[in-house]
Design a protein around this nucleic acid. Structure first.
Lengths: 199, 199, 199, 199
DNA sequence: AATGAATGAGGATTCATTCAT
DNA sequence: GATGAATGAATCCTCATTCAT
């Protein structure tokens, strides 16, 4: 039973199938779309909106991501990876790595939420993913953190980052950047947005 | 959930109309219920859950609040008012007022969100309310802010508060309080949670 | 978030609300509709079809029945109750009670399925309900079963009924009745469809 | 389930095309897989599950079977053919042929459904196939049915089989066999499960 | 003034089926 | 000839909101 597509409109044209080759492209489109939609509508945006923006059917989204949380994770994953890359590059000082992180903070509303991992986040099971990603960020930063740095103590590093992310809000990028800078200044830490290579 | 109707609905008595006198009591019950539900389920909890917890029908909720945002605003309103009261009481120093604010921060997830007013907040029109309430908080605090206080400069006051609210997360109250303290310390500002009178 | 009914078509007329008084009527309409739909489309018919046939919104169905299985159970419950009533009425001999059961067999495709309780029934969790209902049928029948009846032995009673229900198929009621009669005859048991009072 | 694509799709090798020779093997694998899946999940199982179990792509399933009903028919076809073979073998008495049929009844939930051909079967067009297969079963049996057999009369033969199939339910094979035996006994017909050669 | 049933749109999810490779 | 990605319709279910009582 449950014959899904009704036999009704017999000759409805099927809108072109770009073939399996498009799969990676679709996945990337979905992640990009999700990033946009998250920025515009918040993390509770309907998945259908993401699929539509990516220009794919709903099913494709589900093929690539088992659930809502996986989509979010994929978006954040990209940001986190860039922080890790920066931390891995000898050319980057701790301040620069912090800058890359800050840049992502000003760029992506979703990324901010990540560092808040802890709130009662409603239905979305993003929490589990968020924690892991958050830890990866911390690990990457600590690799470069000078021992005598003011944030080197106990849990101060991630706390400070959470604080800055709390400060970063505002409709425009410029405003967000301004607030990020001011926040780091209040903390007495040198850091300013640094656009990563791959971004 | 989803209480299903008894089959004996024929003879069920109509649950007594407590008359006009009950109106304020109902309103209060709704706000209290909303606070609980928000804490448990997040700000996206169904309105029906709030009505049920308050022990009133859905209609009553709509009599008192035009929409979802109004409910949230009413909850926050209480918090804001207590900050204002503290700021109005001569017995409270600026540090103490900040403490009351901090106390609310550790108490109420919703209140934290308030100070974030700025994110892309999806469809809910909480934004408008939030901005106003946020401004009331600022006004109250500035009334007591010493001119030479480190936060007296430009937008630093609310920025710092946003930063602390960003830091405050965690499942337990104790954990949240711990983080709030640590955050203020990082900012070099003296402040610790102060439970207000009326709370 | 998840503002459900969009504010879009502002003045869409809401199609009359018959008020709470209609609740029991709605429930009955749903059960009746379910019976029809089950007969036409099988037990896997979409719930939306049942709601539509009953002339109510989808929500009403969910208000009255938590899930698909509950709807089915409500339908079967009616049939079972009539068998029980017949068994409780002194005017009915065992043969007559069996006749009432047989009548339901010819009447309701769903009821037949009930007595098959055992197959791998896919997603629907009807099984649990079905077993209980099946046992009620057995209890009712045994109350009137003469000790020296050929079906009195061990599990023969329900087995025979399952056999007859297996035999009863066919598009028209007449055909189904014919087969039921023939099946009982093959078993050497006297029984013919008896329309219950309340039917 | 819902195997999600590896991100490394770029370099994944296309899983070898086994050439035309594999076609019959694939078809057989699909039928076998369908039988298993039907037994586990019921006849409404997704076609994709069958393809996956058979270790082939979805497309192969569609190459061999035009629709869901055709898959079911192919499964049943095997059972029917074995009954026909038994009926064609001189070594088998009518009782033995009936035994082979009974064996399939205890073996395959799908096969049971076949003999029920007649119910309101929802949207699936299995009906058409089922009727034909059912008639082949009858023809095979009648070839061996002694003229003076109690089931020789009118439509009694298939009715009796339908009755037995109605009786056969239960989670375990043993239980199903027990019920089949009891059912035949109630009908006063000698028959017990006989495992066919090719089974 | 309160109750809670009803409505129905919206979002989530699943699969049958097609088709580029 | 095979693979499995893509499509999108259908179904499920939830809730905001209205309204008869």
């Amino acid at each position: 039973m449950t014959q899904h597509p009704t036999t009704s409109s017999a000759t409805r044209r099927r809108p072109a199938n770009n073939g399996p080759k498009a799969a990676p492209r679709n996945r990337a489109a979905l992640v990009a779309a999700a990033r946009e939609i998250y920025a515009e509508q918040g993390m509770d945006a309907p998945l259908s909106a993401i699929a539509r923006r990516a220009g794919v059917g709903q099913g494709v989204l589900y093929r690539h991501f088992p659930d809502r949380a996986a989509v979010a994770a994929a978006v954040l994953e990209e940001n986190v990876r860039e922080v890790e890359q920066a931390a891995g590059a000898d050319a980057f000082s701790f301040t620069a790595v912090l800058g890359v992180l800050t840049w992502h903070l000003t760029e992506s509303a979703a990324f901010i939420g990540l560092l808040h991992a802890g709130e009662a986040t409603g239905r979305s099971g993003v929490r589990a993913y968020a924690l892991i990603l958050s830890q990866r960020v911390e690990r990457a930063l600590r690799k470069r953190l000078p021992e005598d740095h003011p944030l080197a103590a106990g849990g101060d590093l991630m706390l400070a980052i959470a604080m800055v992310s709390g400060a970063v809000s505002g409709p425009t990028r410029a405003e967000r950047e301004r607030r990020a800078l001011a926040a780091w200044r209040l903390l007495g830490v040198a850091a300013e947005p640094v656009r990563p290579f791959g971004g």
